[in-house]
Amino acid sequence: MRSTPLDLIRPRRLYFVLVAALLATAGWPTPCLAHRVTIFAWVDGDTVYTQSRFSGGRAAKNGDITVFDAGGKQLLTGKTDAAGEFSFKLPSRKGLRIVLNAGMGHRNEWVLSADDLDRTSGGGTAEKRPAGTRPAPPLIRVPASTALTREDIQSIVDESLDKRLKPMMKLIAELRNDSPSVSDILGGIGYIIGLVGLAAYIQNRKRR
């Protein structure tokens, strides 16, 4: 009797294969841990924050960060700290490409378009003022607030939004966990089973 591909599907062996598969699945400590590096960047005021991680949540320590402008000119370089974070002063508002190289062939990038930078910095006309120079507090007490200009209101709102949104941005960075889901894994195995079927079919036709 020759050994055939169907050997694996005979009842007794199928049982073994299933048990082995179940054990293997149960043995996965955390199926989300894997080998891929991601970088996420956001702007807060005039500082760009980046967070670099391997999928699964481990920080990418000591990774090389290179920042390019929209034209591809290198603006600055740096290294991520122990938490995988790196921040720098916004060098230009015309779009940035932040490239992370975590060594051993792991690389990823994050693009901040001119649009992103514009919006987060409060628009082109309303330049953000340093916190100390805002003349708002005495003016707020004036009942007819004719002195409170559009720009003032915008800068106040921007500042307070920045403060409120900072933890949110951090939270989004934390939640950006795009490691493989169970459906990805099962989908991949399904593809392989399908390919096996296809290959067996083709081979079988050839043999006739």
Binding site: T4, P5, V17, G188, I189, I192, I193, V196, A199
Partner: peptide
């Protein structure tokens, strides 16, 4: 033909 099923199982394992 005899190795197809094995290849599939190993491919899934590698995957």
């Amino acid at each position: 033909y005899d190795h197809i099923a094995r290849a599939g199982v190993l491919s899934a394992a590698f995957f």
